[in-house]
Write a protein that binds this DNA or RNA. Structure first.
Lengths: 341, 341
DNA sequence: AATACTTATTAAAGGCTTTTAATAAGTTAT
DNA sequence: ATAACTTATTAAAAGCCTTTAATAAGTATT
């Protein structure tokens, strides 16, 4: 049940924080009406939060015919988040505030390449002691993650089956979230572009281990039964090839030998498969892999398979930025929802 | 916010009902501990519900060292549900209690074939006046449904774009749920087989409009951006055919000319596509379309495409029964969650 | 400038549930 | 059979949010 006083307080706090951050500033009446929480309760929380320095009074509103209302802003520096990217060749980190503004970036030698968890721990220790306001840690990894535990990360056996979330939450007493890089990217896209939160998105990329996809269905990350969801390499296509083979090898027979780009066909076919199965709202491609022109050709080619009215939007985005944004938004969610006091 | 007294009461009620129905019977202490609601609150609700006849005292427990506890059971006859299936050639209905026990079945001439909503209204009117305890109506239709509104139902234009839920809730003042037949079936399978509620399931069938699928991903029904999700007919496959064509026309070249059943290959390929994209826990086939032997052949054929450890369970089920069960469980959900007093 | 009118904020009362204490109803041991 | 001990239930007190009433602080009008 969610009726204990503590969970109530937590919920009210996150609603107030979310609204203040989203709308930049608010009065008590606005909060009360929007959040459907009574005025006295809002008033009590606001007083407490102002005392803690979590929110700041920014003066009085223009009068709307009566007494002028006090307007409050969230203090974005009240809490900070730390996002860490474990990539093959490098390990970067970013410190950001509740608005997603970056306070510091940095890197350490690749935790994955060195196969050394201790390196990561030391990095976090240093950052956390430099920035005592850090209240959440988001870690992105190129592998499958199950509730903070790294489930499958080919090539980096030291990290296989490691409960990163459990370990660091114990170690630092700070909420931790761990997420797969593609899932973080698709979440980042969703947040960044203001996608409605129950839509379905697919983020396509071609990684070093072959192409793959990050999936959001009805707004939720899809991991699959054996964390195999999004492994679109394996989708069977024409000519007894799967998607990866078709992409790499090109056509094996003459029909489309004169296709300008032999990758168009497998991609369009994959778009059709995705549409016929999950009918997503948008499919996102990486900006270093396609351009607007190719996108349009793909769209046309896909409508060979699927009635055009059902085809998703095909868009292009910046993968690294989405990834960053996704990790940040996971971290900010922890700040907003998990920090209680 | 969910803190208003009314929504609180509603939530407590549904929790008590759910637990009593799932566990057959309970004491106040059991309810209090399991639901994490204080004993006095449970006690108050139980007293009220017993007075209404919603629950029944079934005597005292054996002593566990002290005063013996009273044990309570839910009275399954307290509320009834009505489920109606609109099918091409027939319209059937079922009246059931909270345990899913069927009190009466019946049919009227096909509402769809006659293209006559009034027929349905009259049928419900009669049933509801015969059984005043009916407190929920679940309607299954062979078309796309968006929040109770029939969105797309080829062939029955009178029903196109009809807000069935809104209309009947207004008309009868009883909660109504409308669901697509395949979605109801996959929900029914989930409930009936006690599938964990965040797993992904695919229900495959070959309807008169070609094959299709009902999808549950992370436990939620997937409708898609344009209600096209599950239209697996359109999945591109080998030999420039989509799934439907491959199924209907058979192979067009020689490689697999001696395949025992030429439908094996397209189905296995579809299983592979589903796995590579959403990696479901289980794929369900209809018992009048396949048997155990074929299932095994499909499983083997699929592992040509996908590492076997990622393949879903392939199972067989009774479609009509799952459909019925799905509608019933939607109806029972309304009884449990929406009835307040 | 004084009065009527708006609107924000504070204060008091009421309705929930939870926590804690008290009582009732059994069981076990002497 | 009585005392000591368990456990269920009832009763009272406390906490928290909401509703309602009262007050404060402006604006507009005469």
């Amino acid at each position: 049940m969610n009726t204990t006083p503590k969970s109530m307080k937590k919920e009210i706090l996150s609603h107030i924080r979310t609204y203040l951050l989203e709308s930049d500033s608010a009065t008590k009446v606005e909060l009360s009406e929007r959040l459907e929480i009574s005025f006295p309760t809002i008033s009590k929380f606001i007083a407490q939060m102002e005392m803690n320095g979590e929110i700041i009074s920014v003066g009085l509103d223009e009068s709307s015919g009566g007494r002028r209302a006090k307007r409050y802003k969230y203090n974005p520096e009240y809490m900070l988040g730390l996002a860490i990217y474990l990539e093959k060749a490098e390990t970067n980190y970013v410190i950001f505030n509740c608005l997603g503004e970056i306070k510091e970036r940095g890197d350490v030698s690749s935790v994955l390449e060195e196969n050394d968890l201790h390196l990561l721990t030391m990095c976090i220790e240093r950052v956390v002691s430099d920035y005592p306001k850090i209240n959440s840690i988001a870690i992105g990894v190129p592998g499958s993650v199950d509730n903070g535990r790294i489930f499958y990360i080919p090539g980096y056996e030291q990290f296989q089956n490691l409960d990163v979330k459990g370990f660091y939450e114990e170690h630092f007493s700070i909420p931790v979230v761990v997420e797969n890089d593609m899932n973080a990217a698709v979440l980042g896209y969703q947040q960044n572009r203001g996608v409605k939160d129950n839509q379905s998105l697919v983020y396509l990329y071609s990684g070093q281990n072959g192409p793959g996809a990050g999936l959001l269905i009805n707004g939720n990350v899809v991991r699959g039964n054996t964390f195999f969801a999004g492994e679109v390499s394996f989708v069977p296509q024409n000519n007894n090839q799967n998607f990866r083979q078709a992409l790499e090898n090109g056509p094996k027979y003459d029909d489309i030998a004169f296709s300008m780009d032999y990758q168009i066909e497998p991609i369009s076919s994959l778009v059709a498969s995705l549409t016929a199965i999950i009918n997503p709202h948008t499919i996102i491609f990486c900006n270093d892999e396609v351009d607007e022109e190719i996108i349009e050709i793909i769209a046309i080619a896909s409508s060979k398979y699927i009635p055009p009215e059902h085809l998703p939007n095909l868009t292009i985005s910046d993968w690294r930025q989405d990834y960053l944004y996704g990790l940040q938004s996971l971290g900010i969610n922890l700040l907003i929802n998990e920090t209680i006091q």
